[in-house]
């Protein structure tokens, strides 16, 4: 006890926050995996998982056990270091953005004054993981996936940043907490509808989800960058993907959907998290629905779309925003 009392309270707070966030990442992956399968099932007019537990609710637990039990296969001619590093690099940085996200007025691990930039830089590491995995696998299909991921990330990070900047201009701060605070009266989605649309499209592309799932385009590249992975190596990529989706949706909620704001609840400063999660999961539901409805775009179409439409439109959007604010 004595040691704990000598530690700075801020450190203890961070340790607790990290533990909670890591457990939440696994919980989120299980929920998202289940939701994805169930929604996909209903979109396709079939029940989805039904066998394990009531309405298949334990399906993902069983799948997790299966994945943990699988052999970690390392093919002969791969770059062993990079091959092992890939999944870890994909999974580790996804924890960090959640540290600065304000789930409610008081539920936030750390309020950085440059929180938004922190999130953007942390989510960008994901593409390094894909590159490392694709290069290390020594497989032409994996290499294709990695190359596509890099080009796609670079193309789509720009419109994401530009659409975020429009909001930053309006709130006049990079701190996520203050951005949410600025939406007390009116959500930014109403003032910045174009930025919201650009952000959501780019966000789907950034997380490599269908219809922009080119790095793992199944029908073209078998499984893209994770072709050679099995067991936990494979599932770490999935944990990373689902957490990235959650991060993208959370940032969208913070920037455009008014964060924790909603009809007043008792203990509002804590229970605002209910509204926050409702909004996030609504966006995630939307992303899942898109995935199971649309075919995949072609690679040049994807890049054309980013460079020819999203970037110019977001630039114009920023210009208009700046002019209106200045007036």
């Amino acid at each position: 006890m004595e040691i704990i009392s000598t530690l700075p309270p801020e450190l203890i707070r961070m340790v607790f926050a990290v533990i909670i966030i890591i457990s939440f990442i696994f919980l989120n992956a299980i929920m998202m995996g289940y939701l994805e399968r169930k929604i996909a099932g209903h979109v396709q007019r079939r029940p989805g998982p039904m066998e394990v537990g009531s309405h298949g609710i334990l399906q993902l637990v069983v799948d997790g056990v299966k994945l943990v039990g699988k052999e970690l296969l390392v093919p002969v001619n791969v770059d062993r270091t990079l091959f092992r590093l890939g999944p870890i690099l994909s999974f580790t940085p996804v924890i960090l953005p959640l540290l600065v996200i304000p789930f409610s007025e008081k539920l936030q691990a750390r309020d950085l004054n440059l929180g938004l930039l922190f999130i953007v830089s942390m989510t960008s590491i994901n593409v390094m993981a894909i590159l490392v995995a694709g290069w290390g696998s020594n497989n032409k299909y994996s290499m294709f996936g990695a190359m596509r991921a890099v080009a796609q990330s670079i193309a789509y990070e720009i419109p994401i940043l530009l659409s975020m900047l429009a909001v930053v201009l309006m709130a006049n701060t990079f701190s996520l907490k203050e951005i949410v605070g600025a939406q007390q009266k009116i959500w930014f989605i109403l003032l910045q509808p174009l930025a919201f649309i650009i952000y959501i499209i780019s966000g789907v592309a950034e997380t490599n989800r269908a219809p922009f799932d080119l790095p793992e385009a199944e029908s073209e590249l078998t499984a893209g960058f994770h072709t050679e992975y099995s067991g936990m190596g494979f599932s770490l990529f999935f944990l990373g993907e689902y957490t990235n989706m959650f991060t993208v949706a959370s940032v969208a909620t913070v920037l455009f959907l008014g964060g924790w704001h909603g009809p007043t609840l008792p203990y509002g400063e804590y229970l605002g998290i209910v509204w926050f999660f409702l909004k996030v999961y609504f966006l995630l539901f939307f992303m899942i629905m898109i995935r199971w409805t649309y075919p995949r775009v072609r690679f040049d179409q994807l890049l054309n779309f980013a460079w020819k439409y999203l970037v110019p439109f977001s630039l114009v959007n920023i210009l208009i925003t700046a002019v209106v604010i200045k007036l």
Binding site: R45, A210, D213, S219, W292
Partner: peptide
């Protein structure tokens, strides 16, 4: 064909 293009749903409608 739609599966080749990356859409997962039509094949299940077709199968139905």
């Amino acid at each position: 064909y739609l599966l080749d293009l990356g859409a997962f749903t039509p094949i299940l409608y077709g199968f139905d």
